[in-house]
Every structure is written in structure tokens, then in C-alpha cells.
Write a protein that binds this DNA or RNA. Structure first.
Lengths: 363, 363
DNA sequence: TTGTACGCGTTATCAG
DNA sequence: CTGATAACGCGTACAA
């Protein structure tokens, strides 16, 4: 045995900074048991005598032993790391979800590996390759652009959790938020305030959630017995700037409206700026509501009425589902129902010349 | 040889989903060379005959071989992953930096491992332990709360890059932004607009950058021959809410002022809300400037004048420095100088009753 | 219940 | 310039 240890110590090029690397083998020696016993205790793979277990625990603590994930990965085929594909790591929207994933995974000893797809299916696919190269144990896709088929395909080799769509496939769990209901709620809010001509700024129609939000808007209109007016729905792409441009187009079209429902908060902010530039006040002249309830919505001027999207919980739930998938269980995680948060950007329709188009007011 | 292969194939518990795992050994066999040669080609460790190199490249491509990072880590003592300690992964400020780190590291084949310290030195230390357990090759600390000594200590066992402070230590590179100059610029801007009573909302004084920003504010005042008025500096902690409360206290104090300089954009947003609540207009009644130029500053109402903090470049530079440290070089990365961005939240001081305290106007 | 022995996929050393 | 060979640190089938 001593010769083996010596042989290792003599090795050169290995770890560059071998300051106090303690190995399982050293723990075993210190505790007077075999390496396998230590391994078993670490993984709970088998029952061990209390006596030895105590000795090992003591040795681990005393030596400050920390298992080497690399070796574990190589030997056991697991890396205890989960790939997380997101669109933009710096998005105000996804940030919260990442936090949820991080915390929930951490609790179970897993680490997330974040990669950004930048809204491109091609880059997403590439990200997944990177993650697989890193041998992650599973992949969480936060609202990606990959096709359902591509995702189901990945699930054949790796457990997959995906958010933002409905999809059933083996070893795959889809976790969706009720975007339809959320949008219905928001539109209903405006309707209940007396608004009848409500403009809608939509997200990219290639996104399932964008489609659902539009559907919710239409459903609310229909329930109120109002006709759907194509002229009031403006295309956007979830960015502030697209919201700004949508409102400028709307204003230029002279189409009358008294409220705007943006399919996400970022577009609502852009819309707010466009209104401000035309000297229209929110909510006095136009009511404005968003969707998602990002952190900054609370400090917008005026604070934005919006649909609360539980992103942190979304991240948590996705992580939980992944953990369950990994354990061979069937995930049960669900998301809370949408809630509308009424703040100061929307108010009751004032007695105004019905049907008059808001105009740029001269200063 | 065949028996060895068979032995492996027979093994059970290993990788759970061995769909097409191609090993370096298989590549070697396919190319008719030894595994060492393949390894050498992969790492550029030595010169190989062009002929064999071509054969190997072909085999790699044909088989779709991807090196296993685990095995690499185990054998080579490197993991090709870098730990990144951040305060809040969902912060509007750090998000950009993370993106910069991700892209720059990715270019070199490294992956970032993000962990959040949540503004607590204790949790940061814990994060670093987690990262070390994962055997990261180096650690990037984005503006942490850890003491200089603690950081220098870590640098003894691992290369460290830290932002937001000045510090020299072996195997450690500090990358700082000129917060002093940035703040001086912002204050100077307000001064040049004719403002004389400029309130300052500071960050937590335990943060080096917060101290620098305060210093820059004072320096600008001094250069303009104005006295420093303690009553005009309000404590804050970089959150929106602290900005809001600071302004409320300021207004309640009846201290006259015509402009507010918040030490970061988030506090400026809170300040803006407080002013809005008291029916004070920006910039008509009060000029407001922030610091950082977070993405949403452009869409605030009105768009916020602020100091541009190149966070993306910060992340990039930190990653570059780490790569250089890893290569045994001395990092040279530097940050661009601060620039002040004048938008619509600040304007020339109007001829108004000088020294009159802004008051809440009745609607 | 415990120990032995081997293999996970790669890199580094050393001999040729 | 190239090929054996021995680790890297751990998990696990198998024997005891």
C-alpha cells in the first residue's frame, strides 16, 4: 500500500495546486476501513456498522475531505450538474428563474450550468451540445425556441424539463404557466374599468406563450361581447423598443383607443415611453397594463399594473421536476395560477369623448 | 485488446444512457494510432506527423468524438471551468457582466459556474467552498463583500480575479472601474447645468465603490467651490426602495435642493417614484441622475441621465484576465473610462426662487 | 456487513 | 515523433 501512495505522490504534472487535497483513500486509511466502505457511507449505497460509520464521519470532518466531482463523474456516470438553457442570462425576466433553479438544485447537491441561447434555435442546439459534452445529468430548457420534436429527441438520451410549452414525451416534463388565463385576467381588468378599445401589443407569434397571451386577450373581449379589431393588435417582440414602436404606429394610425395591454412588461415600458414622448399621460389619458411583473414594474412611473408571473417559483419547480425525473419518479410540480396585480398605470375610463383617438398634446 | 473492450461493454452500473459515447480510445483505433497521439493532437502538446494528424482529425469528425471533461479533469488536474461568484444572478446590474464572462470564457473552451453570494460575506465564502469542491480552475469574484485578506488567501490556492476594488496579491488580479471619476462626471454635469444644491443618495459605505462615488461627488462640489452639506447626503443601499425612502426623508427634512444624484440607477428609480408620489416632476422640478446605465435606464420615464458603467466589458475583461492568469501571464485587461450619458432626467436649472425647497404640490 | 479489484476516459512520463 | 503504461479519485460487481 505504501508503495502505491508513494507512486501517486511522486507524480508530477497532476493537480497544479495540491494544497491539501484529501482523497477518499486517505479517509479510509485514517478511519481504518476500506475505501469502498467510505464510498458506501457517502452515497448511502449500503448499510454500514454504526461504529465504522462514526469513525469515517470523524475522519472526513478532521481531514476536511471533499469528494472530487470529476472522479465521481467518471466512475459513477453522474456529474451532479444540470444544464440550464436560457435565452439571455441578463434578462430581467429569466433572472428570477435562474435563482429559483440555483437554490432548489443546490439543496440537493446539484449545480446548475447556465448557458444562453440568445433566442436562436441554432445556438440553443449548440448549447445543448456543450452541456452534453460536459456530461450534465439533465437539461432544463427555460422557454426555448427548439422544436418539440428536437426536445423529445434530446429526452431520449437525457432527462429534460422544459418550461413555456405543453408537451408530453418520455423522460420529459413540460411545465407551463397559464398564459391564456393571465392575459384574460389582464384584459378583463381593463374591461371592468370601462375600457372598450384596448390595444394589444403582442409578442413574437413563434412563441407559444405569445400566442396564448393573444388568445387570452381575445377571449376576454369575446366574453364581454366586444368584436375583435385587428387594427388594435400590434406586433412586438418582447423588447422595450418593439413596444415603443408599436405605440408610435398605433398613434400614427389614428385608431381610437383608451388602454393598452402589452404582452410583457418590457414592451409596456417601451409603450409608456412612447406615450410620454407624445405627451399622453398614464393612466389619465391611457391605461397601460403589462405581463410578467418583473422587478422593475413596481418602480416604473407610474407603477405598472401587470400579471404576476411567478418566475422564481418557475425555476424552483423546474428544478424539482428535474430532481424527480432523475430519481425515476414522475414529476408533479405545478405552477401557481396567474394573479393580476393592479397598480397605478390603469384606472377607470373617464367620461371622455368615447372613441376619440388620443392625440399628441402640444406642450 | 478485444477482451478489454468487451470487458467495458459488459460493465453495468456505469453511464446510464450510453447512447453513442465515443472515446478517445476508439478514435485512436479508428485512426490506427495510439491514444497518446490522439491526446497530443487534441491538446497540441507535441508535434505530430501531418499524416497521422489528418487520419485522427478525420476519425474524430467521422465518429463525432467529444472529449470527456470529467476524464480530462481527473487526469490533467484541470476542469476547464471557472467559478464566478456574483451577488445576485438576477440583478439588472450583474446580468450584463455574466454575459461578458460567459462569452469570453466560452471562446477559450472554458465554462463558467455561477453562484450567488446574496450580499453576505459568509455566503460568499461558502460559495467559494462549493466552487473549490467542484475543482474549478479559477475564481472570478464580481464585487464581493469578502475582505481583501480573505481574497488574497484564496489566491494562494487558486487564481483569482476580483472586480470593484484595488488589491495586489500574487495570482490575483483586481479589475476596477473608475467610480470616483464617474461620480465626479455626474456631479459636474449637474453643476454645469446650474444646480447648486445637489442631494446625493449613497450606497452602502462598506462597499468600496460606494465610497468612491461619494468621494467623486464631493470632489466635484469642491472643484466648484461649493461647501459640502451633510444634510444633502442620504444613506441608501443600492436598492430601489432605499432610494425611495431617501427622497422621502429628504423632502420631509425641508432641506432645499434642485437636483438628486443617486449612486446607482436602481436608487434613482426609487427616487423618481418618491418624487412622482409627491407630485414633483423630473426634470422640470428636480433633475435626477443615476449611475451604472442599466438597460432599463433608457426606458425610464423620463429616460435617465446616468454614468455608463461598461458591465459587459467588465465581464469580458475579468474573463480575459483569468485566462491570462491561467496561462501564467500577467493580466493586462483594463476597463474603459467612465462616460456620462445625458438623457432627459436632468436639465438646466430654471430661474426659480433660489433655495426654495421643492414641495409636494397639491393635485 | 465488508474488502478486493477493476474500470470510468484522459493525460503525463518515460523509453524507444 | 510515437507508443506503452501508470496514474487521476471514486463507484460497484463480486467474493468473502
Amino acid at each position: 500500500m505504501s508503495n502505491k501512495t508513494e507512486g501517486r505522490a511522486r507524480r508530477k504534472g497532476a493537480a497544479t495546486h495540491d494544497s491539501g487535497k484529501v482523497t477518499l483513500e486517505m479517509v479510509a486509511a485514517a478511519a481504518g476501513v476500506s475505501p469502498s466502505t467510505v464510498s458506501r457511507i457517502l452515497n448511502g449505497t449500503a448499510v454500514v456498522a454504526d461504529e465504522k460509520r462514526a469513525a469515517v464521519d470523524e475522519a472526513i470532518a478532521r481531514l476536511g475531505f471533499v469528494p472530487n466531482p470529476m472522479a465521481r463523474g467518471l466512475a459513477g456516470g453522474r456529474t451532479l450538474s444540470i444544464g440550464v438553457v436560457t435565452q439571455a442570462i441578463d434578462s430581467p425576466f429569466y433572472g428570477g428563474a435562474l435563482r429559483g433553479v440555483e437554490e432548489e438544485l443546490g439543496r440537493a447537491g446539484y449545480s446548475p450550468l447556465f448557458v444562453s441561447g440568445h433566442w436562436s434555435a441554432a445556438r440553443e442546439a449548440q448549447c445543448i451540445e456543450t452541456l452534453k459534452a460536459r456530461r450534465v445529468d439533465g437539461i432544463i430548457v427555460l422557454t426555448g425556441r427548439l422544436s418539440d420534436a428536437a426536445l423529445a429527441q434530446q429526452a431520449q438520451s437525457l432527462p429534460v424539463v422544459v418550461t413555456g410549452r405543453n408537451l408530453v414525451a418520455p423522460r420529459l416534463y413540460a411545465l407551463n404557466f397559464d398564459n391564456f388565463e393571465g392575459a384574460r385576467l389582464a384584459a378583463h381588468h381593463l374591461l371592468s374599468l370601462g375600457h372598450r378599445r384596448i390595444a394589444f401589443i403582442s409578442g413574437d407569434s413563434r412563441h407559444p406563450d405569445a400566442k396564448e397571451r393573444l388568445r387570452g386577450y381575445r377571449a376576454a373581449l369575446e366574453a364581454a361581447g366586444l368584436p375583435f379589431e385587428p387594427a388594435l393588435v400590434l406586433p412586438g417582440n418582447y423588447t422595450e423598443d418593439s413596444g415603443r414602436m408599436a405605440v408610435e404606429r398605433l398613434l400614427d394610425s389614428r385608431e381610437p383607443f383608451t388602454a393598452i395591454f402589452a404582452a410583457n412588461d418590457q414592451m409596456a415600458f417601451g409603450a409608456g415611453l412612447a406615450l410620454h414622448r407624445r405627451h399622453l399621460r398614464v393612466p389619465e389619458d391611457v391605461s397601460l397594463v403589462g405581463f410578467d411583473d418583473v422587478a422593475s414594474a413596481l418602480y416604473a412611473i407610474p407603477p405598472l399594473s401587470t400579471v404576476h408571473h411567478p418566475v422564481y417559483e418557475l425555476g424552483q419547480a423546474a428544478a424539482q421536476a428535474m430532481l424527480q425525473l432523475l430519481a425515476g419518479e414522475t414529476p408533479t410540480a405545478q405552477l401557481p395560477a396567474p394573479r393580476f396585480i393592479s397598480r397605478e398605470s390603469s384606472r377607470e375610463l373617464q367620461a371622455a369623448p368615447a372613441g376619440a383617438a388620443p392625440r399628441a398634446r402640444r406642450r
